[in-house]
Simulated scan of single mutants.
Amino acid sequence: MLTGLASLPLSVLYVVARGLYLLLAYVVRYRWRVITENLRNAFPEKSEAEVQRLAKAFYWHFAQVIVEILKLLTISMDELYERAKIRNPELAIKAMEQGRTVLAVGSHAGNWEWILSTGALYFHERAHGVYKPLSNKFFEYFMRRLRTRSGAHLVPMRDTLRDIIRHRNQARCLALLTDQAAGPEDQPYWTTFLHQDTGFYTGADRLAARFQCPVFYVGIRRVRRGYYDILLTEIHDGLTPLDGDAHFITEAFARQLERDIQAAPDQYLWSHRRWKHKRVTE
């Protein structure tokens, strides 16, 4: 059934997305309380009417992303290449040509699932993505199939360090989604993000410091329906000595992501319980 649905042209799938939007926003009201609370806290200057409008805009964005992710099952690589453009891939390619592992830190903005698949088209066999395996066997198989169809490789989150050590001399781009809610057990880095005390995973800091990896922030934005621009911004050159405990990379990531969200607030994943953890104070 999913394969048959994914075989439909994106123009038809966007009609499906419209129905999905109406279902999520007006019938099910999917995570409405979480979404509106996140928006109120992130944009305290906005009126309640503006928050409500932004929540509806997010639902429409989210519905489009759902069908676009499904389309990864059947989309031709030529069509994907036309729809998602990395505007400056030469930055990462230059580092990889020097035989280095590049870290690409991204977020749940735009269509985050298209980033790795698009990266595989630009970087070929050198695109790898860190992910958290799903407990449901069917959806784990399904999502792996989607994510690897363009030639990308997946690395389970728990195996990240072991994988880098094993392939430390392999030129590749390793992508990490760095905006998830880090719990106390993850020893997060805390900073003010969208007006809120926010904990971030710090793996990128430690990996870059230990293995001298160049680090690029990955920004993605929908420029029109079904089309995305992906832009790399250098955070660290991989040459300057780096103190992993100083969290320079994570702080820079947070600031860049904050600017991107403020520029296109409807394109962030507001349904995620991003701020469910609180800083533990002594």
Rank of each mutant, 00 (worst) to 15 (best):
A209V: 01
Q196V: 00
F200T: 04
G199S: 02
P156L: 09
T178I: 07
C173E: 09
Y189M: 02
F142H: 15
R206G: 05
N169G: 12
V215R: 07
M157Q: 13
L146N: 15
H195W: 00
L174I: 13
R168S: 13
H167F: 10
V155R: 09
V223H: 01
N169M: 00
M157W: 09
T160A: 06
A209W: 00
T198F: 07
H167Q: 10
P214H: 07
L161R: 14
V223A: 01
I165D: 12
R149A: 15
M143N: 15
T148H: 12
Y228W: 10
R221H: 09
R168Y: 11
F200K: 00
L207V: 08
H195Y: 02
R225C: 07
T198Q: 04
V215A: 02
A182I: 06
M143D: 15
H195F: 01
R162Q: 06
G226R: 09
R158D: 11
L194H: 09
D229H: 14
P188F: 05
R221M: 06
Y189H: 11
G199K: 02
P214A: 08
Q212T: 09
Q212M: 12
F211C: 03
V215L: 05
T202C: 03
A182S: 04
M143H: 15
L174A: 03
R206A: 05
P214Y: 07
R144E: 15
I220K: 11
Y189P: 07
E185R: 04
Y228T: 05
Y228D: 11
Y227F: 14
P214E: 09
L174S: 02
L154R: 13
A152P: 15
T192L: 01
S150I: 04
A171K: 08
G183V: 00
I164M: 14
I165N: 09
I220C: 07
D186F: 01
R162F: 07
T202R: 15
G199D: 04
A208T: 07
V155D: 11
A181Q: 12
Q187D: 00
Q212Y: 11
F211M: 03
T148R: 11
T160M: 10
A152H: 10
D163Y: 14
F216A: 02
P214Q: 08
L177V: 12
Y227I: 02
Q187P: 00
A175Q: 13
A204E: 02
D159Y: 15
A171C: 04
R224H: 13
F193E: 06
L207A: 01
L174M: 10
D205C: 03
F193K: 00
L177K: 06
R158Y: 09
R221Q: 13
Y217D: 01
P214M: 06
D186C: 01
I164S: 10
R147N: 15
F142M: 13
D163S: 12
L161W: 15
N169C: 02
T148W: 14
